[in-house]
Amino acid sequence: MNSSQHYPIGSTGQKWSDADKLAWLAMQSVKRSYQEQVLSKVLALGEQFTLEQYGALSCDEAKYPLYALKSHNWQPTKQIILVTGGVHGYETSGVQGAIRFMETKAQAYAEHFNIVLIPCVSPWGYETINRWNPGAIDPNRSFYQDSPAEESAAVLNYLASINADIFAHIDLHETTDTDNSEFRPALAARDAVVHDNWSIPDGFYLVGDTINPQPAFQKAMIAAVEQVTHIAPADDSGKLIGVELAQFGVINYATKALGLCAGLSGATYVSTTEVYPDSPLVDDENCIIAQVAAITGGLDYLLTL
């Protein structure tokens, strides 16, 4: 199966023009509230943590302010932990899991680490349930110098401004059925290429860094998540999303070369979570709990070093 089927925008064999991208943008609509579902929860944490606005999206600065949370007792002797969510706005549990971690677990870990949390990198994407930003750019392929995605550039500028020498970075994501039904066909149409679709893994898995995989760190996270939800089995080819399994529940990607959020720093320990919210075995709450378990499992491992 491939994603070369007809997409309602563009001409077969031709990359999207600016007019095509505007036509795609015109098809998008707000489906949920960033203010109600995300911002209100983040602002409510302003007493427990240091709340910092690091920008706003140019499409509507008043509607889409960008916020980060930092642990209060910031000390230069502590190592810095970065947690990011909502790089792809449609991946709900990444955003809600990041917030839940701060609401329920972060204070205890702040005794040992400096914690930085960016809960919703792409608020327009969150509201429109979208992988791309308004310019039809994927923020999670745009974490590099002179980034074309303002969401990614804002994160990079913010981390540079606080001089964050990151020790560990956990980036929270989902793999959904719409990856094959919508987003990969759109990508194929935008770039005038053919993409082979993969079987969507039924369960949780992790993506490590090919160059710096840190298998023990990944294993600890999987073990923690396994206590609250099921781990995705490999497909018949021994792969997850077309990539060879590195260990149970873990594949590796070239995070820096691909411009992924997980590759934005020189962190020693890096992992991208992938929850499957469309599984009949889970619900929204279970997906959020799995994201929190991944974070705490990773941090518990780091505390043993």
Score class of each variant (00 low, 15 high):
116 V>Y: 04
214 Q>F: 01
189 A>N: 13
17 S>H: 01
47 E>F: 09
133 N>I: 06
42 V>K: 15
49 F>H: 08
10 G>D: 04
72 H>F: 07
270 V>R: 15
116 V>D: 05
264 L>V: 13
123 P>N: 03
95 V>I: 15
74 W>H: 13
169 H>S: 11
115 I>S: 12
84 T>C: 08
154 A>D: 08
47 E>T: 14
92 T>S: 06
273 T>N: 02
120 C>Q: 02
302 L>R: 04
93 S>A: 14
53 Q>V: 03
302 L>C: 10
123 P>E: 02
168 A>W: 01
123 P>I: 03
53 Q>E: 08
290 A>E: 02
4 S>H: 11
47 E>Q: 15
35 Q>V: 09
192 A>R: 05
53 Q>L: 02
261 C>E: 11
265 S>K: 10
232 A>E: 07
88 H>E: 09
193 V>T: 11
184 R>E: 14
168 A>Y: 01
43 L>E: 15
148 P>R: 10
302 L>V: 07
260 L>Q: 06
240 L>F: 07
20 D>E: 04
160 A>P: 00
74 W>I: 14
117 L>P: 12
247 Q>V: 13
62 A>M: 10
234 A>R: 05
130 N>S: 15
117 L>G: 10
21 K>I: 09
199 S>P: 02
165 D>Y: 01
107 Q>P: 00
197 N>L: 15
291 Q>F: 06
283 D>M: 08
111 E>R: 12
64 Y>F: 13
71 S>R: 11
279 S>E: 06
35 Q>G: 04
157 N>E: 06
44 A>P: 05
139 P>M: 07
78 K>Y: 07
208 G>Q: 13
34 Y>N: 07
282 V>I: 11
149 A>H: 08
73 N>L: 09
160 A>I: 01
255 T>C: 12
294 A>H: 08
24 W>Q: 05
276 Y>K: 02
66 L>F: 05
251 I>V: 15
62 A>R: 09
204 F>A: 07
59 C>P: 05
292 V>K: 08
259 G>I: 07
267 A>K: 00
186 A>W: 12
238 G>N: 04
201 P>D: 01
252 N>Q: 12
181 S>W: 00
273 T>L: 04
124 W>C: 04
106 A>M: 12
115 I>M: 12
224 A>S: 14
146 D>N: 15
295 I>R: 04
258 L>Q: 15
118 I>T: 13
113 F>D: 11
146 D>W: 09
54 Y>G: 14
286 N>Q: 11
299 L>R: 03
215 P>N: 15
9 I>W: 07
165 D>L: 04
155 V>S: 08
173 H>Q: 04
23 A>K: 02
219 K>C: 14
270 V>P: 12
181 S>L: 10
115 I>A: 13
126 Y>T: 06
111 E>M: 08
216 A>C: 08
234 A>C: 03
154 A>K: 10
122 S>F: 00
18 D>Y: 00
192 A>L: 02
212 N>H: 14
250 V>I: 11
184 R>H: 10
144 Y>N: 06
277 P>R: 02
1 M>E: 14
233 P>W: 02
91 E>F: 03
